[in-house]
Simulated scan of single mutants.
Amino acid sequence: MTASCKVSICVPTCNRPELIVECLDSCLAQTHTNLEILIGDDSSDRRTQQLIESRYAHHARIRYVRNEPPLGQARNVARLFARASGDKIALMHDDDYFTDDGIANLLKPWQDHPQLEVVFADQYEVDAQGHVDAANSDELNAAFHRTSLAQGLQKQPGRTGLVQMFPNNGWIANADLVKRVGYRDDVGTCCDYVFGAELCLAASQVYYLHRYVSYYRKSDVSISRSTRGSTCAASLTAFQFVSRLTLDASLEPARRQAMRRLAPIVVSLHAKNASPLAALRVALRHPYAYAYGFDARFYYHLSLIARALIAMTWRRLPPSAARFP
C-alpha cells in the first residue's frame, strides 16, 4: 500500500539558492519514488529560479512556482499545501534535507496502522556546512521528548503537538488533514509550532518513529533567530497561543507542561523589552514553571524585572527630578 502512495514534498524557499540544492537533491534521492516536489519561491531576486531552470529542468517531479509578490513564510507554505496532489504531504524547509530513506521510513508505520494520520521522527542537527553533530542531535531529540521509550502510537495525539514533540520537518501526514488544518499567517514566526500543535490536536492517530529521517540545519541566518529576544519572538506567540487554546480536561497537563517551558522565556522577553509588569504577571501566574520558587532562574528573572521597573520609573521622572543635586 505504501509503495503506491503518492507523497507531495513541499519546499518553501526564500533567498537561499546556496542551500536549496542539498534539499532538492535529497528529495530526488528518496528510495520512495512516487512523489512530487513542490517549490514555492519567495526570493527577492531570480537566482533560485535560474538555478532550478538550469539544474532541474529535466526533473518532471519538480514543480516550481515563483511568488510575485512574495507571500511570506506562512502563506507560501499554505499555497504549497493547496497545490499538493499527493495522498500525503511532507514539509521540508529549504535549508534542511532528508535522509535517502526518510520518506520510506515515515510511510512504514501505515503498514501496521492503516488508520494513521500523522507520522514524525527524529532530526539530525547539522551546522551551517552540513556536518552532523551526533551528541547534539541526541540532545535535541531528547529535549523534545523524542526517545526510544516514546516510539509508537501516541496515547494523546494533542499532547504531542502541545509539548513541542512534533518537529518542524521530518514528518508526513494525510493530505486531507493537512489541508483542513492549514498554515496560519497570523502567528508570525511561530507558524511551524502552531501548525504542529493544531495538526496533532485534529488527528485521531499520531505515530512517533524513533529513527533519523531528516537533517535540521542550525545556522545564524533564519527568521526565528532574527526575531529572538524581541517582542516578535516565536516563544511569545507560542505562549499566547497555548494560553488561549480551548482544550479537553485530559490535555490540561500537556498545556501545563508546555507552559513550564514557555513561561520563563516569556518573562525574560517582557523584562528585557521594557514590560516589567507583564513579566511579573506571567511569573506569578505560572509559579510551577519555577518549581514554586526553588529555581535560581526565578530570582534571576526577578532581578531583570526589578531593573526594568527602575529604568521605567527613571524615564518617567521629570528632567528636574532626574538630575542629581
Rank of each mutant, 00 (worst) to 15 (best):
Q73F: 14
V282I: 13
G86E: 04
L149T: 08
Y208K: 01
G182S: 07
D94N: 03
Q164W: 09
F144V: 02
T2Q: 15
H301S: 07
C14N: 13
N34T: 07
R159V: 01
L107Q: 05
G161H: 05
R63F: 04
Q151C: 00
A78H: 08
N34I: 11
R315V: 13
A279K: 01
R47F: 06
V163F: 07
L236F: 04
I37M: 03
T2A: 06
Y56W: 08
E125W: 09
A202F: 09
C190T: 09
R307Q: 12
D122A: 13
K272V: 13
A263G: 15
A134T: 11
G196P: 00
R228H: 05
H210E: 02
C191R: 00
A3R: 12
S243C: 11
A128M: 11
L107E: 02
N136E: 10
R79G: 06
S44H: 15
A74M: 12
S243G: 05
E53Q: 15
Y193R: 02
S250N: 11
K179Y: 02
G158N: 04
R315G: 11
Y207G: 00
H113K: 06
A78T: 06
V7G: 02
R184F: 08
W110M: 08
R46Q: 15
A197H: 02
R83A: 10
A74F: 01
A84K: 05
R228A: 02
G152V: 01
P287Y: 14
R63V: 10
E117T: 06
H58W: 14
T48Y: 07
Q49H: 06
V242T: 04
C5M: 14
A29Y: 01
N136I: 10
A308S: 10
A143Q: 11
F324A: 11
F195C: 06
G102D: 02
Y216C: 00
T246C: 13
T237F: 03
C23D: 04
R61L: 14
V11D: 03
V181R: 04
G152C: 07
C5Y: 10
L38F: 05
Q50W: 13
D185T: 06
L38D: 10
S268T: 03
A202G: 02
A274Y: 14
L199C: 05
S303M: 14
A306W: 12
Y212C: 04
P17I: 06
D138R: 00
N15T: 13
L317A: 12
